[in-house]
Design a protein around this nucleic acid. Structure first.
Lengths: 126, 126
DNA sequence: TCAATATATGATTAGCTATTCATATATTGA
DNA sequence: TCAATATATGAATAGCTAATCATATATTGA
């Protein structure tokens, strides 16, 4: 994170294309939104969580132990990972007796996962 | 990363819904692809880089100093960030005299950025 | 060739976080 | 209520990485 005390926007920055810069700054997302976007991507950006998410994308719903088996990940890791994803509203939990069943809870995230897989498939260039 | 020496897939895992688990495992992406997907998301998941990417999404193309000004980020941070994005094929560079102009280099990433912004806009529930 | 400029790279460090192991909670059936 | 089971949580640590400052490279014009 840049140090806000430096007041970068009020001094000492070179600007070449002033019109384009002020246009870009006008459209610039506020810090809060940037932070939330980055947090979303960060949550998708851990291999353990990525694996869980794609498993849920395929399976629809899985209990914790099946998620562990399907993704070859220790259950405690799965549980820790699911908590982060649940808190962020990316997955949701349904209780059934002593088991918890998890599934994806966000249509946009489903699309992100799909799109990203495509990105890899047609990898390299666009 | 789970410790592969544990051989989790060959022993001691509880499975409830065997059919669903083996189906999920059959569809499971190989480790290499999971790693690449996670790496892609991780690259998008840093606020500095997120800011740069959305600035480029709006502006089309910007030189390093204009990117710094538009995103209110020290130029050296911008340069470091751009190197990672360039190496990953997410942005591309064009030289013009002593300046470098950067732009997005991947259609899927452009869609990811768009989609994610929508996710925030219609935030919360799906 | 030399200074100025625009960007890139290297090295260091501080902060974060995924993993691990231990323990806790919650639910069921006896 | 008690043991067993399924999941969750807590705490500690090791590894990663973004930010920083110093320095290097590349291009231009004189």
């Amino acid at each position: 994170m840049p140090d806000p005390t430096l007041g970068l926007d009020s001094c000492s920055m070179r600007v070449i294309d002033e019109a384009r810069v002020s246009a870009a700054r006008a459209q610039l997302l506020p810090d809060g939104e940037i932070e939330r976007l980055a947090q979303l991507f960060r949550l998708l950006g851990d291999p353990t969580r990525t694996r869980l998410l794609y498993a849920l994308l395929e399976a629809g719903e899985l209990c914790v132990c099946d998620l562990a088996a399907a993704s070859e990940t220790p259950e405690t890791n799965v549980s820790h990972a699911l908590r982060l994803l649940r808190t962020a509203g990316i997955v949701k939990a349904r209780r059934d007796g002593r088991m918890m069943h998890y599934s994806l809870d966000d249509a946009h995230v489903r699309m992100l996962l799909d799109l990203s897989r495509d990105h890899l498939r047609h990898a390299g260039k666009e």
